[in-house]
Nucleic acid binder design. Structure first.
Length: 810
DNA sequence: TCGGGGCAGATTTTT
DNA sequence: TCTGCCCCGA
């Protein structure tokens, strides 16, 4: 007779191959659980096995909710659980998707209709601009971006439009006025922005206890991945869902928190134990991904952060080859070297293109790589480059679909009303918009209203009316399959024809893209069946990005930003442009922001399994001009003794030419000198984003005096002495302001620099402590004091005038 | 009203 | 370098 598989047998297969601490995490089901998971520690494995374990214990799949930060993570979790526990379906998805789903269910509670539109960033920006125009706000003085950022911040912190209190800043004043109007406009359009998805749900849970209780009961077991990336709204939502059933498991790593700029609060994870006193904490610290040397570099780097939970990273993997750092003369050499590395490894059969990845801080840096990859015939793919859904033709067609689904969508209306051209111009739309507002109508309603049309020139009125009628007819198809609606839209509007007939290459590409959208729609119809439909399609496409389409099977080198790299791993990783102003990025001012940049590099480093190549270029072309750069400060925080450091900017032939006596400045350096001296002086020395002054030499020799240096009889002090005495040996890579330059060149060894020229964040040299960073300044002139942080020596204070401190690079 | 051309301005990361 | 915006002529 057939025996049902007994529990231990099922349990066996789920627990098999897990370590002690992994099992601990998997088997803890009731009550709060915090899994602190270092990079490459098998977190996804633990999480998916835990889900399977729960199902094995007889917990209903419908009682489990798994929230992730990205669609990619959700999909991976889904498929892993599916293979461990076939046939069981746990609701897994992103916070935003989850909230969208809840909002569809409870829309009226927050003043929406269930068919609300989800605006992406550019849509919301349009709304904001309209509101700013209506109020005659000086857009030159208050940039929409800035105001949008402030509104977003408020929403993430659950400050509603009516709760917003102007801060002292002038922007605050504007936001106080704009925010409520912006929000009203969104509601009027039956639309939400990304932040609203979270905010509305959080508020709803707070204000409707019966709904909260109902959902708490529905989702008895909640899991949150990447908890370090949650913001206040997300925190509140999670708390609300875990009151009666406090079975909350969160996983995360404070060191991988890279979304602080979006309102993520590392505190949420750091304080988790405080928020949930009964919590069980499991630390997953063993790394199964990287070599010892790669992990060591990551570990040393991240130790420089203060806002973290101390943890030890270790691995049983082999030491591996040293981590490489190369200073290239320019970004061309950098790109060429990376392309060559791929070519050679692939040609020799050691690697395939898909083994390689290149990370950079900002998308703009990918261009050179692309061109060199093309030259060498290296197949590559860019994650997140030109986003399909951001293309004009796609946005236009999607806007038509939005308007069909939600006739109140004013943004969609404005986007398509004159696309293709129907003779409805700016003045007409301004008039229509004003009349609509006055009469409390949406734009489409206004276009239907004969009284309103009377106030508009006859020709335009007729065009508007015809447009409105056309939309009515299209609306009749709203509940048909997406591909059908799309077809009807294209026929009725003639949108595709306008491009089809022109024959230019650009327009042909647009037609192709529209066809592509057709394919996507058809696939969606087929895959979703009953759960499909226009609304679901619109929601799905507004909540995906192109990272999600990232196909790991394809045999290509992957190019992506450091942010996009999170959660991935590659055998060979290159991280380029480790330069001040790029990584850490210029915009970072506070120490917290610098720490986030450091985490970003940490994330990048820990993606590498076997080989890691770091690089910077001495000259980089950005925004059309070539400028000298300063290597990233973070490089000084890496364990240089274990690494391979290479300076390719020294004279041809020798690549190991550092610290070898005087030399003639190269042409590039002379160019640099002339460029920098022609730059205007900045009055305030403490300009945010000003690169710290440091020569490549100093940087390369910066880390603690290690054995290899000592063997060469080339101590830190000697080096500093050399650079002080002979200008040629310590030539500055860059000078930021003429003023500081003057200060530096006036020096002869003792401190005769005007103490007022020191600024916070400045890199200075001390004869015994070496390079350090000015952290604090006080007083003026002869009494001016500086507190300087020296890597390896700690913090020291000086009266500048009496100290031997000098600006680095002088 | 429309579209081209010229110019200024701006550039991080993403659900 | 590239985009987005404004202005102008048709």
């Amino acid at each position: 007779m057939f025996e049902p598989a007994d529990e231990s047998e099922g349990a066996q297969h789920i627990l098999a191959g897990l370590t002690e601490s992994q099992r601990e995490a998997v088997q803890h089901i009731d009550g709060p659980l915090l899994i602190l998971a270092g990079p490459g520690s098998g977190k996804t494995r633990v999480v998916s096995h835990r889900m399977a374990w729960m199902l094995e214990q007889g917990i209903y799949a419908s009682h489990i909710l798994a929230l992730t930060f990205t669609n990619k993570a959700a999909d991976e979790l889904k498929s892993r659980v599916a293979s461990l526990a076939p046939g069981q379906r746990i609701w897994t998805g992103t916070f935003h998707r989850f909230c969208a789903r809840l909002l569809r269910e409870f829309a009226p509670l927050v003043g929406l209709e269930p068919n609300f539109a989800i605006y992406d960033v550019s849509d919301s920006r349009r709304v904001l601009k309209r509101v700013l125009e209506d109020l005659d706000v000086d857009v030159a003085r208050f940039k929409p971006e800035q105001i949008a950022a402030e509104i977003s911040r408020a929403k993430n912190e659950m400050i509603g439009p009516d709760d917003y209190q102007a801060t002292v800043s002038p922007v605050g004043k504007v936001v106080e006025k704009i925010y409520p109007l912006y929000q009203r406009q969104l509601l009027k359009s039956n639309a939400v922005d990304f932040d609203d998805l979270l905010l509305h749900v959080a508020v709803m849970l707070r204000e409707h206890p019966e709904v909260r209780a109902q959902l708490d009961e529905r989702y008895r077991y909640v899991m949150v991945d990447e908890y370090q990336d949650t913001n206040l709204a997300q925190y509140v939502i999670v708390r609300a869902l875990c009151q009666d059933y406090p079975n909350l498991a969160v996983t995360g790593d404070p060191d991988q928190s890279i979304y602080g700029w979006r309102g993520a609060n590392v505190r949420n994870i750091l304080d988790f134990e405080h928020d949930y006193p009964q919590v069980k904490v499991v630390r997953l610290e063993q790394n199964y991904r990287s070599t010892q040397r790669i992990l060591s570099a990551a570990d040393q780097l991240i130790r420089h952060n203060r806002l973290r939970k101390d943890k030890r990273l270790f691995t049983a993997n082999e030491p591996g080859q040293p981590v490489h750092y190369t200073l290239f003369p320019s970004e061309q050499e950098e790109a060429e070297a990376i392309a060559q590395r791929v070519v050679q490894a692939v040609r020799s059969g050691r690697r395939r293109p898909r083994d390689f990845a290149v990370f950079y801080r900002i998308n703009a840096l990918s261009r050179v790589l692309e061109s060199y990859f093309r030259q060498h015939g290296v197949p590559y793919r860019m994650v997140n480059s030109v986003e399909f859904y951001q293309r004009k033709e796609i946005k236009d067609v999607m806007a038509y679909l939005s308007l069909v689904n939600n006739p109140r969508d004013d943004v969609a209306f404005l986007r398509v009303v004159n696309e293709p051209a129907r003779g409805i111009g700016k003045t007409t739309l301004e008039r229509l918009s004003r009349l609509a507002t006055e009469n409390g109508l949406t734009l489409l309603e206004a276009a239907h209203d004969s009284n309103i049309l009377k106030a508009i020139s006859k020709k335009s009125a007729k065009a508007l009316s015809r447009f409105a009628v056309m939309m009515d007819q299209l609306a009749e198809h709203a509940h048909e399959p997406v591909a059908t609606v799309l077809g009807e839209v294209l026929i009725a509007t003639g949108y595709r024809d306008q491009y089809q007939d022109s024959g230019t290459e650009e327009d042909m590409q647009r037609v192709v893209n529209i066809e592509e959208l057709f394919t996507v729609a058809r696939q969606f119809d087929e895959a979703q069946g009953e759960n499909g439909g226009l609304e679901a399609f619109l929601e799905a496409s507004s909540l995906v990005n192109d990272t999600d389409a990232f196909d790991e099977e394809e045999d290509c080198v992957s190019l992506m930003t450091l942010h996009a790299a999170k959660g991935l791993e590659f055998p060979v990783v290159s991280i380029i442009a480790l330069e001040e102003g790029v990584l850490p990025h210029d915009r970072c001012k506070s120490e917290e922001e610098i720490e986030e940049e450091r985490r970003l590099l940490f994330v990048g480093i820990t993606r590498a399994k076997q080989e890691l190549y770091l690089s910077s270029a001495k000259y980089r072309t950005f925004r059309g001009t070539t400028k000298p750069t300063v290597p990233s400060w973070f490089l000084s925080e890496l364990p240089r003794a274990e690494m391979d450091w290479e300076d390719l900017t020294r004279q041809s032939g020798s690549s190991e030419g550092r610290f070898r006596g005087p030399r003639h400045p190269s042409q590039m350096e002379r160019l640099a000198a002339s460029e920098s001296s022609s730059r205007p002086a900045t009055s305030a020395p403490n300009v945010p984003g000003m690169p710290r002054l440091m020569t490549a030499d100093q940087l390369l020799g910066l880390s603690k005096v290690d054995k290899s240096d000592a063997d060469r009889g080339d101590t830190l002090d000697e080096r500093l002495g050399a650079s002080r005495g002979t200008p040629a040996a310590g030539k500055p890579v860059t000078m930021t302001t003429a003023k500081v330059k003057a200060a530096a060149s006036a020096t002869t060894g003792t401190t005769e620099i005007d103490p007022d020229l020191f600024y916070e964040g400045m890199v200075v040299l001390h004869p015994s402590y070496g390079p350090g960073k000015v952290e604090q300044l006080a007083g003026r002139g002869a009494n001016r004091r500086a507190t300087v942080q020296f890597p390896g020596h700690g913090r020291k204070s000086f009266v500048i005038a009496k100290s031997p401190l000098r600006p680095a690079g002088g």
